[in-house]
Amino acid sequence: MPAEETTPPVTAFMLIKTMPEWLAMTPQERVSAFATQVVPAIRARTTGVRSRFYDTEFYSTRVTDVWVWEADDHEAYHLLVDALRETPFWDRYFEIVDLLVGTENGYARTYGLDPVATITT
């Protein structure tokens, strides 16, 4: 029996810059703001999204953080962005510098090739 074909997840690299209002908060206030203002909005609007957060302010002044969002499909990603835009996250706590959205190994699926990846030991 052939393997079931599935739609690849959508991955979004959200390049953001912290705003003065966010930086004026204590670390505990930031955690609380995210937990009470952002997370509930996401949960109310969509499912099938996961996130990871990377600090980059040590190396860049234009982009202070990269938030990586993985969504089960394009609709889940669309609903995620709609949810974020309705919270202080969007353009109040953070400036959205750029959004880079794609699917992993899309070229390989398009051309029926094995993905190229590096392996280190």
Rank of each mutant, 00 (worst) to 15 (best):
R85Q: 15
D55H: 15
A83L: 13
L100T: 11
V97E: 03
D91Y: 04
Y93F: 14
R52A: 10
W67C: 08
R85E: 13
R52S: 06
W69I: 10
L99Y: 10
A76D: 01
A76M: 11
V63C: 07
S60W: 12
F53S: 14
R85N: 05
V97N: 03
T64Y: 02
F53K: 12
V66F: 06
R52L: 06
V66L: 14
N105R: 02
R62E: 08
Y77W: 09
V81L: 13
T64N: 03
H74P: 04
E104I: 09
L80K: 05
L84R: 03
D65F: 09
H78A: 05
G106T: 05
L84H: 00
L100D: 03
V66Y: 04
E104P: 06
W67S: 02
E57V: 07
D82L: 14
P88M: 11
H78P: 00
D82F: 09
H78C: 01
Y54K: 06
H74F: 12
W90N: 00
E104W: 11
Y54Q: 13
E86D: 11
S51E: 03
H78K: 13
F58S: 11
A71N: 05
F53H: 14
F58D: 06
R52F: 02
F53M: 10
R85G: 00
V81R: 14
G102M: 08
Y93R: 10
A83N: 04
S60Y: 12
L84E: 03
W90H: 08
E95R: 15
L79H: 11
Y77S: 00
Y77Q: 01
V101I: 15
D72S: 14
N105H: 15
V63D: 07
W69H: 02
G106E: 13
L100M: 01
L84A: 07
S60I: 05
E75R: 05
E70L: 05
V68C: 04
E70M: 08
H74M: 09
E75G: 00
F53R: 15
R52E: 01
L84S: 00
D55A: 14
Y59G: 08
W67V: 15
W67K: 11
V81W: 12
V81H: 08
T87P: 01
H74S: 07
W67R: 13
H78G: 01
E70V: 07
A76R: 06
G106D: 12
W69K: 02
T61D: 13
